[in-house]
């Protein structure tokens, strides 16, 4: 399995497509930071102005943690898109290129090759999310410094600075769980077709439809909401709640992991039996 994963990593990280994600994050995050550096003071004041009547706000509230927390909202759509670019290509790309005929006439079983491809997809996803966190926090420390974290929401929460490295690590782990689930969905779609466009569009369509379905102000929406994996994608927000809602976190992670495993098993069921006609 080690050799197969190494081969998949080699193929993945020699592809131009793989670096679109890193490049996009590497460009967008510095841009957001610079924009906040130039204009952000006024933006954050507009948030805090309403509070200043009732509260006394002290210290550096406009810090790296605050910016990173805002940037994490890209986990809804932007990052999933970048993930599906690669995850959706994992199997479909080999079909398009005709290289299944090179790969699947060799001793390793289809199950082994599929697992290697899945692990590689998860590793790529992890590296992308890690870059997002590391770049945002790192750049933020340089440009804005650290401080307590003001968490916007129905209840005003301020997390003390001492807690934040741990909370950020937790947010990273939870974001990763959500993104792995998205990657698994794109990977599943990738087994169905012979071109990566379908899986990318399919993944985004499912995300958007599920997100809308889960947020409609109707009874039906409330009923289906707990069953949609997208309703648990925002579990990283729990990392900034006080106290930590462990029950919510556990439930969400269980749902995300369950979906990811389900997607993988469905992929395996299809791929192990598939006639390779490409």
């Amino acid at each position: 399995m080690g050799i197969l994963v190494r081969l998949e990593l080699l193929k993945t990280f020699r592809k131009w497509r793989t670096f679109i994600g890193f490049l996009a994050i590497g460009l967008i995050i510095p841009l957001v930071h610079v924009a906040f550096k130039l204009e952000g003071g006024s933006a954050v004041r507009s948030v805090t102005r309403a509070l200043e009547g009732d509260f006394f706000l002290a210290g550096n509230l406009f810090n790296t943690y605050f910016i990173t927390q805002l940037i994490l909202n890209s986990l809804w759509v932007h990052v999933p898109f970048l993930i599906s670019l690669v995850a959706g290509d994992s199997l479909a790309g080999e079909a398009t290129a005709g290289t299944f005929r090179l790969l699947l006439i060799r001793p390793p079983s289809r199950s082994a090759i599929l697992l290697a491809k899945y692990l590689t997809t998860l590793l790529y996803t992890a590296s992308l999310v890690l870059l997002l966190f590391a770049l945002s926090l790192g750049l933020g420390v340089v440009l804005f410094g650290t401080g307590d974290l003001l968490v916007p929401g129905r209840i005003l929460t301020v997390l003390p600075e001492a807690l934040l490295p741990g909370r950020m690590a937790l947010a990273f782990a939870l974001a990763l769980a959500a993104m792995w689930c998205v990657a698994s969905l794109a990977f599943f779609f990738s087994s169905l077709v012979e071109n990566a466009v379908g899986p990318i569009v399919g993944t985004m369509a499912v995300l958007v439809v599920f997100l809308v379905l889960g947020s409609l102000p109707m009874d039906l929406s409330a009923q289906v909401r707990p069953y949609l994996f997208t309703s648990h994608m925002n579990v990283w927000q729990s990392a900034f709640a006080d106290p930590l809602p462990w029950d919510t976190v556990r439930t969400a992670v269980a749902w995300l992991a369950g979906h990811a495993i389900g997607f993988y098993l469905a992929t395996w069921y299809i791929f192990a039996r598939k006639d390779i006609l490409s």
């Binding site: 050799i3 197969l4 190494r6 081969l7 080699l10 193929k11 020699r14 592809k15 131009w16 290129a97 005709g98 290289t99 005929r101 090179l102 790969l103 060799r106 001793p107 390793p108």
Partner: peptide, 19 residues
């Protein structure tokens, strides 16, 4: 058909490793 973005040698090394 091959991995077009890799060299001939790399392609063969992949096949060789699979064997």
């Amino acid at each position: 058909d091959f991995y077009l973005y890799l060299s001939a040698r790399k392609n063969l090394e992949i096949v060789s490793a699979l064997r």
